[in-house]
Structures are given as structure tokens and as C-alpha cells.
Design a protein around this nucleic acid. Sequence first.
DNA 1: TTAGATGCAAATAGTTTGCATTTGT
DNA 2: ACAAATGCAAACTATTTGCATCTAA
Lengths: 143, 143
Amino acid sequence: MSGTENLSPRAARLREAGHKLTNARLTVLGVLEESGGHITSSEVLDKVEAIDSSIGRASVFRTLDLLTSLSIIRPTYLNSSMTPTYVLMPDGHHHHIVCTNCNRIIEFENCGLGAIAAELEERLHVKLTGHLLEFYGICEKCS
Amino acid sequence: MSGTENLSPRAARLREAGHKLTNARLTVLGVLEESGGHITSSEVLDKVEAIDSSIGRASVFRTLDLLTSLSIIRPTYLNSSMTPTYVLMPDGHHHHIVCTNCNRIIEFENCGLGAIAAELEERLHVKLTGHLLEFYGICEKCS
DNA sequence: TTAGATGCAAATAGTTTGCATTTGT
DNA sequence: ACAAATGCAAACTATTTGCATCTAA
């Protein structure tokens, strides 16, 4: 391979942070990006296996950890339990509503948290890179 | 035991939701309440074991699931990985900042999400019972 | 009294490790 | 060239299950 061409923005971030763009990493990233924003670790494992069965489980987990440390994805508990669901953080943030009865996820845009983030950065001397906002409640069908 | 006296508000919610107030449940609840708001499942397991070793692991997990379904607590990924950290949702909500470098947690009050919640309830026909807001970034010491 | 909850111990599932080998840059 | 990353398979850890027994209401 030659240069810097054709990199997805997330792949570019990986490289900029000093990590190699390996086949395992790019495959995991591709699976995440095609997921629509919510995918469990075992779904990632299955899809990666289907695409290239030579990629080992350990590398998938290592990649998920790496992407998490870069705030490209974030693990959260959405289904029953045990396995994390990874959420893509497209512009550094993600929001949804979880029905605590049927586990349905309702996405929404626009959380209006920019002002709060700015205030926290100044008051607490932190540099914020993203956020995840989850509301819990009962969806229309369950009420 | 006789009646309805001396129940913590959370225990009362359990009973109101139609669940029995058993020794295992009250012990787990006590451990959570003494935790200061953040505690991993294995810490809960250890503390419950120390208080009453006759309580089985399975009941601890069953209680954590039950409390989660009632939005009394919420599992989230805060440390390295694998084990969830349960967060108490005192007034139905909880907020913090996670340093993505050192994993330090910085708590803050006041998220100003009441208005957003009300708007979502009306627009999406849901009944919201709580929320969790996590910011990710770099803390003062790590920058 | 009795549906609901428990404790046990075994089974399952999910994740991590160590290390020799391979690969991006 | 060489530090970084990989794949493997075994080890580990965390959680769940089935069921006979117990208990809160």
C-alpha cells in the first residue's frame, strides 16, 4: 500500500494517534461503521469472522479497547446483560432513550449539551472530547 | 417483622413494584447505598459475602438486574472492562466525567436536562424515569 | 398458604494472556 | 529494520441456570 488516500475519517484518527492501520483494525472499523451505530461485541466477532476468518478474537477485543480509548466508540449496557453494546460516537457524542421494559432503543438528535460542556471545561479544568446521554423510561408501545 | 416502617425509599419502591423484601435484596441495597454511588459487581459480591456469607452469588446478580430494571441503579463501563460499575440514580439521574486517560471519575451536579426530557416525552410519546450523562475527556492532571 | 425468591454447584459465556510470528511504516 | 500488532489456544473471570428448599406477605 502506498499513502494516505481513501482513509475513512476514523481510520485517519487512528493513524494520527500513532497506531498502525492493520487489516484486523480496518475490518473491525468497517463492521462498526456498517452497524448503524449500535452493535454488541459478539456481533462484531461474528461479522469479522465472516469477512476474514483469519482474524483472531483477541485482536477484535484489542481493537475495540483501542477505539474506546480514542472515544471513537463507547461500550454501554443495552440488552439483557453481560455483553457490551458498542455505540459509535459520530461527532463525539451519542444520545438515545432505552425502554426499560422491552429494551427498545429510540434515537434522537440534538441534546443541547454544548453550553454545559463548555461550562464544565472552564470550571473543572478538563478537556472534553465527547459524551453519551441515555434516558430511561417506558416507550409508547409498552405504556 | 411487622409492617411498612423503617423502609428506605428504595426498598419502598421495590415493594411497591410488587417484589418481596428479602434479606438478600435488602443486603445488596444496603451495600449499594453505602458505596457512595459507584461500585463494581465484584465489589458488591465481596461486601455482601462479608456481611452475610449465606447469601448466594446468583441472588446478588438477580438483585442487581432487578434494581436495574427499576432504574434504581444503572450499569456502565468505567474501569478497564469486563465488570460493570453500578451507579446509583438518586433522583433518577446521574452525571459524571470520565478521564479517558487515567479513568478518574469527576462528579458534577446540575445537568439542566429537565427541559429536554419534557420535550422528548411529548414529541416521542415516552414516559422518562431517569437518565445517565457521561462526558469523556482528559482531566486536569493528565493534560 | 403459596407464589415468589433463594442458595447451591455446575455449566456457560465472554475476555484476556503469553509468546512466537508477521506486518505496517 | 524494527517496534508494533497479530493469531493462536489455553487460562481466567464473570454470570447464568436448574432445581429442591425456603419465606414474605
